[in-house]
């Protein structure tokens, strides 16, 4: 191994460690926000936390001081109910004060229950009604292509969300228009409100479906920062085809009693659960 390669690997390892630490902070914000609000969606916020962290703190080209920067990468949280994780990433990026996070879902707050671009800086598209954010991301990618810009458009989809028919309308159009600057993440946590995805509505075979729709499909462990970064690097080499990264995740990741639990899809932790969750997420006293 050359010295340059060695230095690069060391730097990457350090970056990944820093990002993992950031993800832990994002998760703590998520639990604090939802506990304070008394309602919200912890499960799907925690499953998408590593993806959002890698995007906002390493992958995406964005600048909180320059909101309308035309060259910026865009992110559409199509599974809008994971808003707390997005808000935490935005606040930690500097789009608004971290102290504002605990106003989530409260009257007069800019942190609406689902992301609203007219309320909060940094939101590229209002979402909440499943399926639509994905189509909007396609519109943004069409605009970028038309303007010959090279920004990337990231969309985060839930696996339950792909039961929406319009997802497949959108999937068809993205490959028809060769939107290779569109990189979607499928947060494959295998649970939706009413139970396991395969029990509620069989969505398998997921990979083959996307391939059949003309997409470049990459499958990863959605909690490995390294795999997320590598997958996006690979997606960026795709020519003429939109990309979807099927990120295998665990709903509620990071909080023992929320992991793999349908119960915490859309339910806030009570005071006792909150204490346990925060203790677990703080781990070895990393953050007081």
């Amino acid at each position: 191994m050359s010295d340059i390669q060695k230095t690069y690997n060391e730097e990457l390892n350090q970056t990944i460690k820093d990002l993992e630490e950031k993800a832990r902070i994002i998760r703590q914000h998520v639990i604090e926000m939802i506990h304070e609000a008394g309602s919200g969606h912890p499960g799907g916020s925690l499953s998408a936390a590593d993806i959002l962290t890698a995007l906002y703190f390493y992958i995406m080209r964005h600048d909180p001081k320059n909101l309308n920067w035309p060259e910026r990468d865009r992110l559409v949280l199509s599974k809008g109910h994971a808003a707390p994780a997005l808000y935490a990433a935005l606040a930690e990026s500097g789009y608004f004060p971290v102290e504002e996070l605990i106003t989530l879902r409260k009257l007069g707050s800019r942190l609406q229950g689902h992301p609203s671009m007219r309320h909060l800086p940094g939101i590229d598209m209002s979402t909440g009604s499943l399926g639509q954010g994905f189509s909007a991301a396609i519109g943004i990618a069409l605009g970028g292509k038309l303007d010959r810009k090279d920004y990337y458009v990231y969309a985060i989809l839930g696996d339950g969300e792909i039961e929406e028919g319009s997802i497949w309308e959108a999937a068809m159009s993205a490959s028809h228009y060769n939107l290779d600057h569109l990189i979607a993440f499928l947060d494959r946590n295998r649970l939706q409100i009413d139970g396991r995805t395969e029990q509620v509505m069989s969505i398998a075979p997921v990979k083959e479906k996307w391939e059949a729709f003309g997409w470049n499909v990459i499958e990863i462990n959605g909690h490995s920062i390294h795999e997320i970064i590598r997958a996006v690097d690979r997606a960026k080499t795709s020519e003429g085809r939109p990309n979807i990264i099927i990120a295998h995740t665990v709903k509620g990741k990071g909080v023992s009693f929320m992991e793999g639990s349908v119960h915490f899809h859309g339910k806030a932790p009570n005071d006792e659960q909150y204490q346990i969750a925060m203790r677990e997420l703080r781990g070895k006293g990393v953050r007081p």
Partner: peptide, 22 residues
């Protein structure tokens, strides 16, 4: 952009395009 017989996608994609200043 002909979006095919897929009006739902057309409308939400129209919204996305509008965010790019179109």
């Amino acid at each position: 952009f002909n979006m095919g017989i897929a009006e739902q996608n057309m409308m939400a994609a129209a919204a996305g395009l509008a965010t790019t200043g179109k």
